[in-house]
Each structure stands twice: as C-alpha cells, then as structure tokens.
Design a protein around this nucleic acid. Structure first.
Lengths: 138, 138
DNA sequence: TTTATAATTGCAACAAGGTGCAATAAAGAT
DNA sequence: ATCTTTATTGCACCTTGTTGCAATTATAAA
C-alpha cells in the first residue's frame, strides 16, 4: 500500500473516498474503465461524486500509482505493478491482444535519434486488423 | 473533387450540407478539429446541426476521403491528399512535431511477424517529451 | 413535372469527462 | 479536545461526441 504513503508525501489528504478508490484499483486484476470504477465505488460508498473519482484517478496517475490509457474512446486505468504492456486492438472484430513492451524498443530508439523525442510508451493502444480477420478478408 | 463522385457511387446523396463540409476540409491546409469544422460550416450555413457534421465526417472517413485522428482528446480531421504522417506530441510543453511515416515501418513489420497483426498507421499521435523539454529537465 | 422512396436532416436527449465554487473535512498545532 | 488551515468534496453546469426518431429532401422513375 505504498500509494497512500506516496500521496501523504505529496501533502495530499487521505480521505475515505481516496482510500476506497485506491483499494478498488489494487484489488482489480487487469484494467478497469472509469465507468466500472465509478460503479464499484458507489456500490460501497453511495453518494461519491464522479468528479471526485475522476480527480482522484488523475492524482493517482500523476503520483505514478496508476496508469491511464484509452480504449475505445473510454479511459481505462490499472495499477502500477502489472508491468508495462501494450494492446493491439482489431478494428474489425474488436478483439484485443496484449503484446509486450520490447516490441516498441526500436521505435523508441529511432525517435530519440531522429527527433530527440522521448516517447512515453505505457500501455499504448494500437489499432489495426488481427491475423484472423486478415485471413477472412482474403 | 472526387469525394463527391465517391459518395455518389456509394448511393449517398449530395446534400448542400455535405458539399459544404467537404469543401471546407478540402480548402484547409493541415488538420481541423471537429470544433473548427463546426464553426466554419455554421458560419456559411447557419442552422446546420452538429450531429449532421459528425455524421458527414464519419461518412467521409469511411469513404477514404478524410482521415480522422485524436489530438488532446479531440477529434481532428484532414484531407486525404496530404500524405500520411504522424504527430509527436510533447506532454510537457504541448508542442507537436510532425514525423514521417517511414519511422514506423520496422514496428509495422515486427507486429506482422510476431502477431500477424496489421497496424493501421495513419496519422498516429504519439505522446512523450520533446528534445527541448528533456534538456530543460536535466 | 409530378410522384415515390429511401437517405438525410434537425432535434432532443444522452454519455463520458471536466471545471469553478461554496461547503466540508483531514491533519497538524495549540 | 479544540482550533485553524488548507485540501477536498459535492454540486451544478459545461463540452465533445453519439443516437433514436419524426420531418424533410435528393434522386430516379413515371
């Protein structure tokens, strides 16, 4: 539970809402959409406002406790300690395949060389056509 | 103006609204946000509803006349004939650097090899830290 | 030129996410 | 245990984008 400690170090207050939200993300395996988080929070603590939840998620993200990415025009969050990985999303069948981080290393390096640009490659979502759909199409 | 021809071939109707929207994207250099398009359309033809505009943009995208991408949680559109390129967006200073398509070729190939996944690499937005900000930080 | 028909529009309502502000509550000081 | 300060909450409202549906209009046929 170092998330709480991290927040405290930043001079942030440990409110019941924040503790609950952090616990929910901790307990989840894989990612949760903002909507799922809102549902789970309000099930345990009715009356918590969605803006509180969005704000807390932003704080946790900035503190490095949680990663935020975008899937299907929805924000998704997951806890730090699952390791970085990326999502290959098939725009035809909707299937999502996880792929590991190393595949983006070469791109990372060439962008630094050519543009001095340091990419933030955490849980990217890459759209395209998966192997099965590609076969069906041909 | 082959956009209009393309729409006609698909059995779609050439309404004044569609013609205006298509012209505006044609006339623009670089990309336009959805909001900018809505503003320009309504300046020339007041009363056109935003849902008409969003729907037309989707149709034009599916017809291959226009490319849609996402910049800063906003949809941006640009006309076909500017060629593919990508945007490197600095999350610190907000600056956007265009980079050319070839830089993603190796990734494209390795995703096909490892996962059989055919990435749709049109006008991606890649977040990170630009050279200048990186220098300032150190 | 009129008519038939299917596509399209505008509208109203909705969903996700974000923001300014007054009321509230956590945390340290007394 | 109480007070003070400052962060945080909830609220109401806003923005971008989407959707179902009745009214309208482009198009092609008569």
């Amino acid at each position: 539970m170092s998330c709480m400690a991290t927040l405290k170090e930043k001079g942030l207050k440990l409110t019941p809402q924040r503790i609950l939200i952090t616990d929910i993300i901790h307990d989840a395996r894989g990612h949760l959409t903002a909507g799922e988080i809102i549902g789970r929070v309000q099930a345990k603590m009715p009356g918590v406002n969605k803006s509180t939840i969005y704000r807390t998620l932003d704080i946790l993200e900035e503190a490095g406790c949680v990663y935020k990415s975008e899937l299907d025009n929805e924000l998704v969050y997951h806890h730090d300690d699952k390791g970085h990985h990326h999502h290959l999303k098939c725009t035809q069948c909707g299937k999502i395949v996880d792929c590991d981080e190393t595949i983006l290393e070469p791109l990372h390096n060439s962008l630094i060389k050519k543009y001095g640009f340091h990419v933030d490659f955490k849980h990217m979502v890459i759209n395209g056509i998966c192997a099965e759909c590609e076969n069906k199409n041909n």
